[in-house]
């Protein structure tokens, strides 16, 4: 069944693609088989991450970038992530509303995803879905994160180029930033530049970022846009292209992708190992006495974990 669906997807069938995305999203047991079939086809698409605080204009900018990329003849896939309610597990996925002009364009596939309890700004499934879009033949993949703060960095490990969208009001926050996305984004955009404070923020950022220049030979440009008026979009698109070219020419694209794949493996291993061990544990299949002792406070959790890892096939070292 998964093989047929993959083959159908490869003929350009959007519904087959959509079904496969759902399989990845629900962590179906068929995912490894699906991935085996798409892996030989990967690496063609270029993936751009779009991140920034809530309401900064990420979806609006994404919408305009799609339009521009389409004019250049590129096909585009979009993954737009919005937060899952921690209370109900439900979500309202509204990013798509800003992209209405593309609903009927067969060269554009938009998929809304809920973060489903994942805290890094994307969902667990995002990287798998990027692979599907790549195999499907999209030239450009845009990944919009949930509205984030500084420490949600998932997108950096998923994208080739990461764009951080800020607004003039972000100025104060930036003064106090010590670590996080500011250190690692490839391009900075001050959207809503129609508002006061945009120029000052641009200057401050440029000064801050100049210091970063030395480390990887790339001084992140700071652009300004007014997404709702379609201003600055061409410049942003070109800055992405320049960054892409620079990554390719220096071999950094290959290095980045290698690192990202490695990270993906480790994340997946961590997630599934934890899930498997926890399930065994909570079903009482293993270590049931131990759990009771930890709950009683007669055995400490450090010793308990050591014992569990030893018993789970000698994972303790």
């Amino acid at each position: 069944m998964p093989v047929e669906l993959v083959e159908k997807m490869l003929t350009g069938d959007q519904r087959a693609l959509a079904r496969l995305v759902s399989a990845v999203e629900r962590q179906s047991a068929e995912v490894p088989e699906i991935m085996q079939h798409v892996t030989p086809l990967l690496g063609r698409a270029y993936c751009v991450g779009i991140t920034g605080p809530p309401g900064a204009g990420k979806s609006t900018l994404t919408d305009r970038l799609i339009a521009h990329a389409r004019q250049q003849g590129e096909t585009v896939g979009i993954i737009a992530v919005d937060p899952t309610s921690p209370f109900s597990g439900g979500a309202i996925l509204g990013d798509r509303i800003r992209m209405q002009q593309h609903y009927l364009d067969a060269g554009v596939y938009i998929r809304s995803m809920a973060s489903r309890g994942h805290h890094g700004g994307l969902s667990h499934a995002a990287k798998g879905v990027i692979k599907l879009l790549d195999a499907f033949g999209k030239d450009l993949i845009l990944v919009e994160t949930v509205g984030v703060g500084q420490t949600e960095l998932d997108v950096v490990a998923a994208a080739d180029t990461t764009v951080l969208i800020l607004v003039p009001e972000s100025g104060d926050a930036i003064q106090t930033i010590k670590a996080g996305i500011m250190e690692i984004a490839d391009l900075f955009v001050i959207n809503k530049a129609d508002r006061d404070g945009a120029e000052r923020l641009q200057r401050d950022l440029q000064m801050m970022l100049h210091v970063r220049h030395a480390s990887d030979g790339w001084c992140p440009p700071v652009l300004s846009t007014q997404a709702h008026q379609d201003l600055g979009i061409v410049e942003l698109y070109e800055a992405i292209t320049t960054h892409r070219r620079k990554l390719s020419e220096t071999g950094q694209l290959t290095t980045r992708r290698r690192q990202n794949r490695r990270q993906e493996l480790l994340d997946l291993l961590q997630q599934q190992l934890l899930a498997a061990l926890t399930a065994q544990f909570e079903n009482g299949e293993t270590h049931s006495g131990l759990l009771a002792q930890v709950e009683e406070g007669t055995v400490d959790p450090y010793t308990a974990v050591q014992q569990m890892l030893v018993e789970s096939g000698g994972l303790w070292r």
Binding site: Q14, R15, A18, R19, V21, S22, T84, G90, A91, I92, L93, G94, R96, I97, Q100, Y103, L104, Y109, I110, R111, S112, A114
Partner: peptide, 22 residues
């Protein structure tokens, strides 16, 4: 999980969104 597509949609746009979002 609710996907909201916005106002004034043609049936074609609604169907396309439903397919893409599965």
């Amino acid at each position: 999980e609710v996907i909201y597509t916005g106002l004034r949609q043609q049936p074609e746009q609604i169907a396309a969104a439903a397919i893409q979002e599965d």
